[in-house]
Simulated assay, not measured.
Amino acid sequence: MSSAAISSKPKPKPLPFVYTFSFGAFAGCTELMLLFPLDTVKTRMQLNTGKSQFGMIGMLKDIVAKEGVGRLYRGILAPFAMEAPKRATKFAANAFWGDVFTKKSTIPMTQSISILTGCAAGATESFLVTPFELVKIRLQDKASTFTGPLDVIKKTLARSGPLGLYVGMEATFWRHVSWNGGYFGSIFQIRSLLPKAESKSGELFNNFLSGSVGGAIGTVLNTPFDVVKSRIQLHGTGEWAFPALVRVVKEEGVGALYKGFTPKVLRLAPGGGVLLLVVEALTTITRNHLGPPYV
């Protein structure tokens, strides 16, 4: 078959929204169950405003020794309730904005458009996740006295009203814009650099590798915003993200903006690979099942 014939082959029809939403939800819950303890360690390291006493392994051991293994999963109900709509929104919004920016594929996807699409998806996602993130952070804090997610919500509403659940919204916005832009933009570039897969296992490997690298790059970009978001949400200060970044640098040094980076990247790099792997695998299976015009 000539290259002209290949290039003229029509692009498969996008899957209905319900499939995109469901695949993102399933992928997110899978990643969360596997890697949540790393998130707890990351949060504890970020909330420490003094000189860190522990590295990642030391913090993990300290939590288990003093508080028990179960403490590593404290606060998981909030992100678990959030994970399905969050990850579903991530991939569904990325697909939606991709259609918008490429005018439903009449404009070729480029890395610039891929980054823009990811940023828009992250912005969309941030509005959904802020209250869940606030509940999670307040439960993960070492000094937390809340009995559970509903207790956090009840006391936050009593003290600050409904808007109290959206403390840290702006920092969350920048955290998700930067991660998604780095993640989806990197995936586009890495896929173009990898040799074309000659088998199904090769395709799965390429998806996992590109997703993992994308997750690592997204984590490098968004960790400073994640640090200030965690602190703003814990203390309910309502501080803006960029002044908070400047304050942290002045008081603790530039390195403080990357507190918790190791457990965070160890979660989100392979986690990004798991997300893409699961979504792409489910998408391929569903397209083959539905047949034309989806394949």
Rank of each mutant, 00 (worst) to 15 (best):
N180M: 13
G255Y: 04
F26W: 13
I285P: 04
V18S: 10
I137C: 09
P263Q: 05
L290R: 14
M45G: 00
K42C: 09
I153V: 15
T117I: 05
L245S: 05
E251L: 12
G181R: 06
L193R: 14
K103C: 05
F132W: 14
V69I: 14
G271E: 08
V64P: 00
R138H: 08
G185F: 02
M169S: 11
Q53F: 00
G272A: 11
S2P: 00
K250F: 13
A27C: 05
L204D: 00
L60P: 02
T237L: 08
Y258D: 06
A244W: 01
R231I: 09
Q111I: 04
A123L: 13
E67F: 02
S7K: 14
T110G: 04
K51T: 15
G55W: 10
M59V: 14
E83W: 12
G98A: 08
K259N: 10
T284H: 07
Y294D: 06
F17G: 08
K250V: 10
V246S: 15
T147A: 14
P195F: 02
S186R: 06
A81R: 04
D226T: 10
E251F: 13
K155V: 03
L245W: 08
F208W: 15
N288I: 10
F54E: 11
L72P: 03
H176P: 00
I232P: 01
S8M: 03
K196P: 03
V254G: 06
L276Y: 12
K200F: 13
A123C: 00
V265E: 04
G273P: 12
R44Y: 04
T110F: 12
P263R: 00
S112C: 12
V167G: 09
A281H: 15
L116A: 15
I285K: 11
R44T: 03
L150M: 11
V69K: 12
Q189Y: 07
L60R: 00
W240Q: 04
E203P: 05
